[in-house]
């Protein structure tokens, strides 16, 4: 548990804290809109974990550049000798493109499903006149007793 170990592992616990924050919001808020916000936070935190694991130290965004170009040389100068040859592709170190491709589609799918959830909340409000889960349950129980 040295300082350098903490420095290289701190993102995982922080992402988990964000995830638990989202879960806590889902658990404690009866308001359906706020519940959807909690779910959205939960979802983005999972995305952050993927992206953090795809980061390569000393790397750059996965858009191909020449190692001999100005930007390529500037990147190479910051790395220890032999690092780019071992972990880079043609002399340039890139971060992992695969999580990026997976997560960027997941974000757009996320907003679409968020919209579906909110549409359901809107219809629930129109049917019950309430948007708090507790109140909806109470109205449901009353309707059940009346039948």
């Amino acid at each position: 548990m040295s300082a350098s170990w903490l420095l290289s592992h701190y993102t995982h616990p922080v992402v988990i804290v964000l995830m638990m924050g989202g879960l806590y919001i889902v658990f404690t808020s009866g308001n359906l809109i706020k519940r959807m916000i909690g779910l959205a936070i939960f979802q983005t935190s999972a995305a952050f974990l993927f992206i953090a694991l795809g980061k390569v130290g000393g790397g750059t965004a996965p858009i191909t550049i020449e190692a001999t170009s100005e930007a390529g040389q500037a990147l190479g100068q910051r790395l220890p000798p032999g690092y780019a040859a071992q972990f880079g592709v043609e002399g340039v170190v890139y971060s992992n493109p695969l999580p990026h491709a997976l997560i960027l589609t997941a974000i757009v799918v996320g907003v679409s499903t968020l919209a579906v959830g909110l549409a359901i909340a809107v219809r629930i409000r129109e049917a019950y006149g309430a948007v708090e889960a507790g109140e909806i349950e109470r109205l449901d129980a009353e309707a059940g007793r009346a039948e």
Partner: peptide, 23 residues
């Protein structure tokens, strides 16, 4: 998560295999 690879580890399983292949 303690067992997860460090931030920026270029040799982690996620970064060393299929990701590198694509690059």
């Amino acid at each position: 998560a303690i067992d997860l690879p460090a931030l920026g580890d270029p040799a982690s399983p996620a970064n060393a295999h299929v990701g590198r292949l694509y690059l």
